[in-house]
C-alpha cells in the first residue's frame, strides 16, 4: 500500500483525518509474509506475522487496512492465544511476552460504528448519481476457525448509499481476483477479471468499488476488454464525499482513468 497503492494509503489517512481519527504508522513494520510465506512455509508465515504483533504498542489497537494482512495477523494472534508453546516461541523470538489483549482491527470494524447520517455536516460532496457495484473479492471469506467472528457483508453498500451513492446488486462481488496468479498465470486470470468487469458493466454500474488494493490492481492490469469501467478504492470515494482536495495525487495513478466519470458527477473539479 505504500507503493503500488499509495493512493489507497493516502486517501484512507485523509478520510480518517476528516473524521478526526489520527492514524499513526506502526514504526518499523515488516511484511506479514503475504500469500507466499504460508504457501511454502507455515512456520515462517507465522513468525513474520508475529513480529508485527510484538512491536505493536500494547495499549493501542493495531488498525490494518489490507484484508490479507488483517487475516494473517489475526490468525497468528489466534493461534498463539490458544497454544502455550507458541506463546513461548513468541517470547523467545521477540523478547516481549505475547499480548493476549492486543486488538487487531480492520478499518471496517471502525467504520461500522460510525453513523454516517449524523455526519451530514462533514459530507461536503454527496455521492449522488454514482452507480457502483461493491467488490469485496475474498476479503469477507475466512478460514473455519474464524467463521463465528463478526462479518461485514453489505458494509460498502450501506455506507456509500448513506453518502448518496447507488449500490447495484450483482453476483461477482465476492469472486477472487486471482491474487498472485495474476503474475504467475496471467492468461488464466484475464478471462476471470474480464468476466467480473463485464458483469459490472452489464449490471449498469459506472464503476467497481473495492476495499482491497491488490484486487484493485489485478482488476486494472489484467482486464483487456475494449470497454472498461474504473475500479475505485473505497477510501478514495469516502474522502471525496468528505470534500477532500487531495485527489489530484490519487487518480492519475489509476490505469483505468476514473476522472471523466467523477468530473461528470461533479465529485471532482
Amino acid at each position: 500500500m505504500k507503493t503500488s497503492a499509495k493512493e489507497n494509503n493516502e486517501s484512507l489517512k485523509e478520510f480518517f483525518k476528516k473524521i478526526n481519527i489520527n492514524l499513526v504508522e506502526l514504526p518499523d513494520w515488516s511484511c506479514c509474509g503475504s500469500s507466499s510465506a504460508h504457501c511454502v512455509d507455515s512456520e515462517l508465515a507465522h513468525d513474520l506475522a508475529t513480529r508485527n504483533l510484538a512491536i505493536a504498542p500494547p495499549d493501542k489497537p493495531l488498525l490494518v487496512s489490507c484484508p490479507s494482512c488483517t487475516l494473517r495477523l489475526k490468525q497468528a494472534h489466534l493461534h498463539t492465544l490458544h497454544d502455550p508453546e507458541l506463546q513461548n516461541r513468541f517470547h523467545e523470538k521477540w523478547g516481549v511476552p505475547f499480548n493476549p489483549n492486543l486488538k487487531i482491527v480492520h478499518y471496517f470494524e471502525l467504520l461500522k460504528d460510525i453513523d454516517f447520517h449524523s455526519l451530514s455536516k462533514e459530507i461536503k460532496k454527496p455521492l449522488n448519481g454514482l452507480k457502483f457495484v461493491p467488490y469485496y473479492g475474498c476479503m469477507l471469506a475466512r478460514p473455519p476457525e474464524m467463521r463465528h467472528a463478526e462479518n461485514y457483508h453489505n458494509l460498502l453498500e450501506s455506507i456509500l448509499t448513506s453518502l448518496g451513492a447507488t449500490a447495484l446488486d450483482w453476483g461477482s462481488g465476492s469472486r477472487c481476483c486471482g491474487t498472485f496468479l495474476s503474475v504467475a498465470k496471467p492468461d488464466a486470470i484475464t478471462p476471470i477479471v474480464n468476466e467480473i468487469i463485464q458483469n459490472g458493466i452489464d449490471t449498469g454500474a459506472d464503476c467497481l468499488i473495492t476495499a482491497c488494493s491488490m484486487c484493485q490492481l489485478n482488476l486494472e492490469i489484467r482486464c483487456n476488454l475494449k470497454q472498461q469501467i474504473p475500479t475505485l478504492h473505497f477510501s478514495e470515494v469516502l474522502s471525496l464525499a468528505m470534500g477532500t482536495n487531495k485527489y489530484k495525487r490519487w487518480f492519475p495513478r489509476h490505469l483505468v482513468d476514473p476522472t471523466p466519470l467523477l468530473t461528470r458527477l461533479g465529485l471532482i473539479d
Binding site: S35, H38, C39, L71, P143, C176, L181
Partner: peptide
C-alpha cells in the same frame, strides 16, 4: 499450487 488461499471453499464447506 493453483490454490491462492482465498478461503471461498473453506467458507462454503
Amino acid at each position: 499450487w493453483l490454490c491462492v488461499g482465498c478461503n471461498t471453499c473453506s467458507t462454503n464447506c
